[in-house]
Computed example of a mutant assay.
Amino acid sequence: MMEMSRAELVRLTSAWTGDRFEDGRPRVPEDTLGRLAALTAEHAWHVLDENGYPYQYVGGWRSTQDRPLVGRAVTSQYLPIRPDLNDAVDAAGRDRGFAAGSQQNTWVVDSLVAGDVMVADIFGKVSEGTVIGDNLGSAVAVRTQAGAVIDGGVRDLTGLSSLTNANFYYRDTDPTPIRNVTLAGVNIPVRIGLTTVLPGDVVFGTRGGVTFIPPHLAEEIVRQGELIRDRDHFAKQRIAEGRYSSGEIDVPAWPEPIEEDFRAWSLARSTQ
């Protein structure tokens, strides 16, 4: 089982210059995560695209809750089982203190802390690719208060959906247990859909989609996203009031009188 050292993780995510977890993952501040939850996937994509990261959004999910998921990625990768590799991973797990015969997917769950999001690359496998059910889901919810993104299956959907303190994104459900796969790595780069995800990425789940945000861009996304959101609110309000037409508002750049009106509107809101 591959697992990067702290030094390797720091090198891998060197664009981030802020606080880090003991394992080396970037630790984006809680305030930034909380503000991000009020934005949309479009707000995030706009900034990501401007900075050369246009492929960080993955759609086509199901989720257990109709609310955002925000947290920091703990990545894991599973491969189709190969006996010699599986034996080596089991031995590595015992060396790390995991009980002989324990399920490898539980090792990842046991590593999670508050604010983490479990991100599992299981190559889209649903039947026998059910990384979590309601028991492990309960452990994820208690440990993270956030949830998981499973590029594969889940089981016990009724129980998972009852865990209102966490949100789980998944491809489909199946009654089979996870089997015939091997945990190949933890906190390594993984592929989710057509997106590369690094440990410590900010996971931003919205209705139907998940955006994986490089940590060093999270604050800029929040700052610009809040501005875009406010301008959208202003535009809709002024159109509804009949003050401006859609043709005056829906242009690449507003003329100065509208910009001046927006600044006054923003100031009034900030003092309320």
Rank of each mutant, 00 (worst) to 15 (best):
A92I: 01
K125I: 06
S102L: 09
G97W: 07
K125W: 01
V126L: 00
A88H: 07
T130K: 09
V126Y: 01
G115L: 10
L69A: 03
Y78C: 02
G101V: 11
F98I: 10
I132Y: 07
D134G: 08
G115A: 05
V117K: 13
R72M: 12
V117E: 02
D87G: 03
V119R: 04
L79N: 13
L112S: 00
Q104C: 05
G115E: 01
A99I: 05
A91Q: 12
V126I: 06
E128H: 15
N86E: 14
Q104K: 13
P68A: 01
D95A: 12
G93R: 06
R72Q: 04
V109Q: 02
T106A: 10
I81D: 15
V74S: 13
V113R: 03
N105T: 10
K125C: 07
S127Q: 04
W107H: 13
A120Y: 02
K125A: 00
A114F: 05
T75K: 13
A99C: 04
G97D: 07
Q77K: 15
G97M: 04
G124N: 03
S76H: 03
A114H: 10
A100P: 09
G71R: 01
I81T: 14
L69F: 13
K125M: 00
T130C: 14
D84M: 05
Q103L: 12
G133T: 06
I122Y: 02
V70Y: 00
S111F: 00
R96S: 08
V131Q: 10
R72G: 11
V126W: 00
V74I: 14
G129I: 06
Q104R: 10
R82D: 15
V131M: 02
V117I: 08
G97I: 10
N105I: 11
V74A: 15
I132W: 07
S111W: 00
T130I: 06
